[in-house]
Amino acid sequence: MSSRGPRLLEWKLGTVAELVQETPRVASLVLDVPEWHGHLAGQHVDVRLTADDGYQAQRSYSIASAPEDPRLAITVERLDDGEVSPYLVGEVRKGDKVELRGPIGGYFVWRATDDRPLLLIAGGSGIAPLMAMIRHRAAAPSTTPTRLLYSSRSYDDVIYRAELERLASAGDGLSVSHTLTRTQPSGWDGYSRRIDGVMLAEVAWPKEKMPVIYICGPTPMVEAAASLLVDMGYDASSIKTERFGATGG
């Protein structure tokens, strides 16, 4: 007896095939989604939860898996005062079903056919859509020269740490630089501060190489990194940003 109207994107039911605890507060949900028609690296999906009395809550999450991967992965950071993320990280079990729709977004996407030098800048769980790009690059395969600058609070908060290490050691043109902003393990040889101009000057491709740049993370970090790069003379139109903040949960 429902009244149905046109929908641009249908909700689909995905089954949780695998749960990966990435860090103490972050988990990846690997989903089997029948009739998934593919996505581009950098796109996101909407996830919708429905209580048994009809109450609904909906959030957007970046897709972390490569387009080449038959399964869809999203990476979710648990926000303690959140509504959806504590369910996805903590309550959901293997075999559970989750409603989602997508893929969504046509701006913050990277295709492996793009051979311009690639600069990726991530803060916290903002690594997720950039990881989709890195995985896409590896799966294509592409040898596009790529640099990732990844800011985390501590060593234990680094998401995909082992996989990034493995991909960076493949010698196909990917390098990864970490900065740990709060605590560092003894003997840490990476950066130990928030992203700043000096760090960007050391890590970023020189602007003469005309890199294409993707930045994703908390709003203040994204704004800071993007405006530093513009001040340094990088072409603003080559910088794509995606931020998350108050709408999370």
């Binding site: 429902s2 939860l49 429905t50 209580a51 109450y55 509504e83 079903k97 989750v98």
Partner: peptide
């Protein structure tokens, strides 16, 4: 039709 999420209650419902 919406799928009911097992164990989901939601919190913003005062």
């Amino acid at each position: 039709m919406s799928f009911i999420s097992r164990g989901f209650r939601g919190k913003h419902r005062d």
